[in-house]
Nucleic acid binder design. Structure first.
Length: 190
DNA sequence: TACGTGATCACG
DNA sequence: GTGATCACGTAA
């Protein structure tokens, strides 16, 4: 069951990040279906220094300022495309970074896209976008369409909160427990 | 632990 | 224009 646009417009981005663990991310690019269960997420808000939107709107982060339910995809370190789900209403720039997946379907396609063995293609935010075919060309795309979307897979289990990774520049906000991981899942990054 | 990588952004 | 920076991944 595909998540409806209302799901993304909740005003509490950490609640969404927590509850996206266990959901299924699906892409249907070039008639090739690939999917994976989300096992790791991070929440970002314009209210804290870890977020691209903390210092206001720029050309890169513009879609974060629109309404929830679209993809925010940007290039990181010149190499990696990172995939986020935009949340909240227009004007409130918040998003959830998808950091790791447990492959679910289309593993052969994922391996062809990455040239890597299955056990190391989706356990990190830069790796999973390559496996799923997500690039900045899809920035701003609606998650209610049939290209990239999320589904409720009926999973319910234990989700743990941790510090976010790779945002030491954010000062005390780097310590916020806004990273969510599926307990005891081997696909979680690092 | 170190560093490649190139778009992005805040300066002028 | 220019230079510092960066929500990573890999090798070692």
């Amino acid at each position: 069951m595909k998540l409806p646009v209302e799901y993304y417009q909740n005003e509490n981005v950490t609640d969404i990040a927590r509850h996206l663990v266990g959901k299924r991310l699906v892409t249907g690019l070039n008639k090739q279906l690939t999917s994976g269960i989300i096992v790791e997420t991070e929440a970002y808000s314009y209210r804290e220094r870890g977020c691209h939107a903390y210092r206001g709107m720029t050309p890169r982060n513009e879609v974060m300022f629109g309404q929830g339910g679209v993809a925010y995809i940007y290039l990181c370190y010149g190499i990696h495309h990172l995939f986020n789900v935009v949340t909240h209403r227009a004007g409130y720039a918040e998003a959830v970074l998808i950091r790791a997946l447990e492959p679910c379907a289309g593993e052969d396609v994922m391996m062809a896209r990455t040239g890597s063995p299955l056990d190391r293609i989706t356990s990190g935010p830069g790796k999973l976008t390559k496996a799923m075919g997500l690039t900045t060309a899809l920035n701003g795309i609606a998650l209610t369409a049939n290209t990239v979307w999320l589904e409720d897979d009926g999973w319910h289990g234990q989700t743990l909160a941790r510090k976010r990774i790779g945002i030491d520049y954010a000062g005390h906000d780097a310590h916020l427990p806004w990273r969510f991981v599926m307990k005891a899942n081997r696909w979680v990054s690092r």
